[in-house]
Design a protein around this nucleic acid. Structure first.
Lengths: 147, 147
DNA sequence: TCACCTATCTATAAGTT
DNA sequence: TAACTTATAGATAGGTG
């Protein structure tokens, strides 16, 4: 965009960097809002400029806290809090991660979302599945068919 | 952008909405990364799709938790934590059950223990697995083989 | 559904005042 | 330093196989 092509690396000239920041920040906020409205997504965006200034966006009518809360619930992460519940939270976090991991594995086996897999991944998965199919077939031979 | 002009309102057609979401999400992530690098900004982006799927970006080498922590420090907000241990334990119990259930399902898919299944169960499982194999094979055809 | 195409719209880098 | 302008690079909506 603009007159010249631009490589994505830190802009050294401070003035240029500041100007570009303002322009692109506005663009990003606009795009974020559009995605949120067009596709009915809930989005939270937090930007700290290099000078430490904060700028944020979040999908109406949610607050940033609600987005963060949802994020933490889903990922099982949380912000450090030093009290007696610390240990419990740790255990909980591990459990949530494990559950999340298992859910992903299940989805993979059921092929609910394999769009991101590489050819090698797919090859490996195919072998695993075919192995399972063979085992089931062997087992079927040993099991009486219902009348 | 694109062939036709577009008003910013929720896209009613589900397929179109999904496609637009994927495209624009990719664009937004790219723009977010560019702003972060070009202008030396620290950014955290959390997106929940309308189906509840999570997608996130945050400025390297920070983690989302660090961004959130900084956000909370600056704004002086706190994310509500669960109040009583009682509630925590309840949630833990549910999680553990869920994890256990998932583990069993996984074992079944991997055919680690199918000795207790009836012929009908096996038949059903075989169909599921074969369906997955087919999906993987179809997907493989669309994926470039590594050199 | 999915990847690719491309006409068209949008964002913005650099220039100007 | 900021607002405005404009040539261009970039994003993407709708179409195709």
């Amino acid at each position: 965009m603009g007159r010249g092509k631009l490589t994505i690396r830190r802009i050294e000239n401070q003035t240029t960097r500041q100007v570009t920041f303002s322009k692109r920040r506005a663009g990003l906020l606009k795009k974020t809002h559009e995605l949120s409205v067009l596709c009915d997504a809930q989005i939270g965006l937090i930007i700290f400029s290099s000078t430490g200034k904060l700028c944020q966006y979040c999908t109406h009518p949610l607050s940033m806290e609600q987005i963060i809360e949802r994020y933490q619930k889903l990922t099982g992460t949380r912000i450090p809090q030093h009290d007696s519940r610390e240990e419990l939270y740790k255990e909980m976090t591990i459990l949530k991660k494990e559950t999340h991991h298992l859910q992903l594995s299940m989805q993979r086996y059921a092929c609910e979302d394999i769009s991101s897999l590489t050819y090698q991944d797919l090859d490996h998965l195919e072998q695993q599945l075919q192995h399972s199919v063979n085992k089931v077939r062997d087992r079927k031979k040993l099991t009486k068919h219902p009348i």
